[in-house]
Amino acid sequence: MKTAGRVLAAKIRSIKESKAFGIRSSELPTWCPGCGYFGIHQGLNACIQELGLPHHQVVTVSGIGCAGRSPFFIDTYGLHTVHGRTLPVATGVKLANPKLTVFAIGGDGDGLAIGGGHLPHVARRDVNINYLLFDNSIYGLTKGQPSPSSPTGTKTKASPYGTHDRPLNATLLALTYGASFVARLFAGDPAGIKRALMEGTRHPGFAIFHIYTSCVTFDKFFKTWANLKKWVHPLPEDHDPSDLRQAFDQVLEDEFSTGIVYSRKYPLPGVS
């Protein structure tokens, strides 16, 4: 007991001392202890701090779901909108004031189910927003229903006999829709998230971060921390993110490799 208390205190101290603390809002997150979203936020906060983005120039736009609560926990401007419409609202914000850095945040339900129709278009338009898709393959806020990325046979109260549908692969979709920056990440690796976010934020087009995470309360079988830690591994060293075909091959072969899967090189201005 005492050890746990000392560990907790040390953790709190380190958080307070880290640069990441300054960006947290005074609201306490409503996520369950052990939720992967804490890790993602660590990465996001660190990214904003390290890039030196003034907090009042950052807008987080979110949809509905546990992921959607994110704007309340971060000390930037936020827009908590309706289910599935994160991307178009974020588009409006960015076009209205291109000086703002816009992070769109949503879960796999928000992004692949109700919001699925918006992803192709924001990718086509290549709007310079940064989209974090928190993929825990479950609907947590509504207490455990299958999501478009749940594997076949997922059993929940809404699907007691197991689902029949095949899951969507968000990274593959992003590549198919022509997104110009695609990263696949793991909530258990906040540092990796930070690095990818920094590069993607600097990327002058649409950047999508497909982040595997765990819902400790409602998913005890698929994306558990144990499973994820077992499956997730970095992309091969020689992976060339500028090669679209390689990106497709990689993603088709390997569902759990993480890193920057694809990043389109734009011609430099002034260079033909």
Binding site: L79, V89, T91, G92, K94, L95, A96, N97, L100
Partner: peptide, 10 residues
């Protein structure tokens, strides 16, 4: 959605 986002951002 985009109209609201735009007005939100001024």
């Amino acid at each position: 959605g985009a109209v609201l986002g735009s007005f939100y951002a001024g």
